[in-house]
Amino acid sequence: MECAGKGRGTRCLGPPTRLCTRCGAVAYCSVSHQFSHRKEHKEECERFEQQMKRVDAVNHFPFAFSRELLRKQESRCSFLTKAGVHRLGMWAHECPCGPSSPSLRSINDGWDLPQDLCPCRGPVSSISKGLTGWVDYYEWRCIPLSSPVALLLHWPLTLYRAIQIACTESLNSETCNKLRIHYLGPEKELLQLAAFAELQALFPDKQVHLELIGPAIPESRDGEIINLQTYAHCQDIDCFCGFSSESAVSGKSASVTIQLHRGLYHDRFRDLVEVYFLPHLSHWTDALL
């Protein structure tokens, strides 16, 4: 967590240890920085307070990558090597020996796995009831538990779980056909953007717009919009996913879009809200994560 008053004329005096006593969601390095940020934070404090009341619920996600998916005392490098994906594509940053200078990956990155071990196409059936853990997900997607995809899919599956908690009523509304998500502080996720295409399977009747906001986003890509029109593809050249990827039409409306915003959330929030209140976004559900 960074000081919410950072960059306001004076340097931070130390670590941000002074939490807002009302919401507890933002912190400051000093009284002076807290005072300088008071006007801006006053507008958001109540909203943050309501969100922080759900912290206990959202801190217990069933879709974090679990060591239960690894063999006893097996290292992550060994696990990835046995799966044949060690240091490949999106997997390159999943162990300590990955590249030291990561950069945004292409959305055309694939799973580097055979089709029976990854979700490279749409599901064969809809979700009959809410997914409660990895066993449910793997069974629904017809993938064996030996597949390593949970390592990358915990990003979209955590979003799925958070949205189920935060806005169940809105999701069930017939008028809610678009879902807008504010995703704060992405880092390694920026190297695995193709995995977020799984959101189209998790929310098949929604258009999902993901706003990624954080200082790790390169300045040159601030404001960039990324369309995920197909699922991340497998390594089998004869699989249908390869043909569907090639036939994706540029400019075609994608069910999952990502927009990148460089900076801290409290600095960019006003801009995002101004866009949010445009009439054509009036039916979007804004789930803050």
Results as ranks from 00 to 15, higher is better:
Gly24Trp: 04
His182Asn: 02
Lys42Arg: 10
Lys82Trp: 09
Asn227Trp: 08
Tyr276Lys: 05
Gly263Ala: 06
Gln207Cys: 08
Cys20Met: 07
His41Lys: 12
Cys234Phe: 01
Leu228Ala: 11
Phe79Gly: 00
Phe277Leu: 11
Asp222Gly: 04
Ala25Met: 07
Val58Met: 10
His93Asp: 11
Leu184Trp: 09
Cys142Ala: 13
Leu289Asp: 11
Asp267Trp: 04
Pro123Met: 08
Val135Ser: 10
Leu288Tyr: 01
Ser32Lys: 15
Cys234Asp: 00
His154Leu: 05
Ser126Tyr: 07
Ser32Tyr: 14
Phe48Asn: 14
Arg22Phe: 07
Glu198Gly: 00
Arg71Leu: 12
Arg11Lys: 09
Leu228Thr: 03
Arg47Glu: 15
Val149Gln: 03
Ser103Trp: 03
Pro148Asn: 04
Arg71Met: 13
Glu189Pro: 13
Glu49Met: 12
Asn108Leu: 12
Thr285Ser: 11
Ile165Asp: 02
Pro15Asn: 01
His283Leu: 11
Ala197Gln: 01
Pro279Val: 10
Phe61His: 09
Gly89Asn: 12
Pro123Ala: 10
Leu152Ile: 08
Tyr138Trp: 05
Arg121Glu: 08
Gln207Tyr: 13
Arg71His: 15
Val58Leu: 15
Ser170Ala: 09
Ser101Trp: 04
Tyr276Glu: 06
Thr158Leu: 08
Phe79Ile: 00
Glu139Asp: 10
Trp91Gly: 03
Leu19Ile: 04
His33Gly: 00
Arg141Ala: 02
Gln200Tyr: 01
Ser244Ala: 07
Lys206Pro: 09
Leu152Met: 08
Leu264Glu: 12
Arg47Ala: 15
His283Pro: 06
Ser250Ile: 14
His86Tyr: 15
Ile258Phe: 01
Pro279Thr: 08
Gly7Ala: 05
Ser220Cys: 10
Asp112Tyr: 06
Ile213Gln: 08
Arg8Pro: 14
Leu212Phe: 06
Phe63Val: 05
Leu210Glu: 09
Lys178Pro: 08
Trp91Val: 06
Glu274Cys: 08
Glu189Gln: 14
Asn172Arg: 07
Ala201Thr: 07
Leu171Phe: 04
Glu40Lys: 11
Phe63Ser: 01
Arg180Ile: 04
Ser103Thr: 13
Pro144Val: 13
Met1Asn: 03
Leu131Ala: 03
Phe203Gly: 02
Asp238Cys: 00
His154Gln: 14
Asp109Leu: 12
Lys206Ile: 15
Val31Ile: 14
Pro62Gly: 13
Leu145Trp: 03
Arg54Lys: 05
Phe63Met: 05
Lys188Met: 02
Ala150Glu: 00
Arg22Ser: 11
Arg76Gly: 14
Gln192Phe: 00
Ala166Asp: 03
Arg18Pro: 05
Ala166Leu: 01
Val58Cys: 07
Asn177Thr: 08
Arg76Leu: 13
Asp56Cys: 15
Cys142Lys: 05
Ala27Glu: 13
Leu179Ser: 14
Asn108Ile: 10
Ala248Ile: 13
Lys129Tyr: 04
Arg22Val: 13
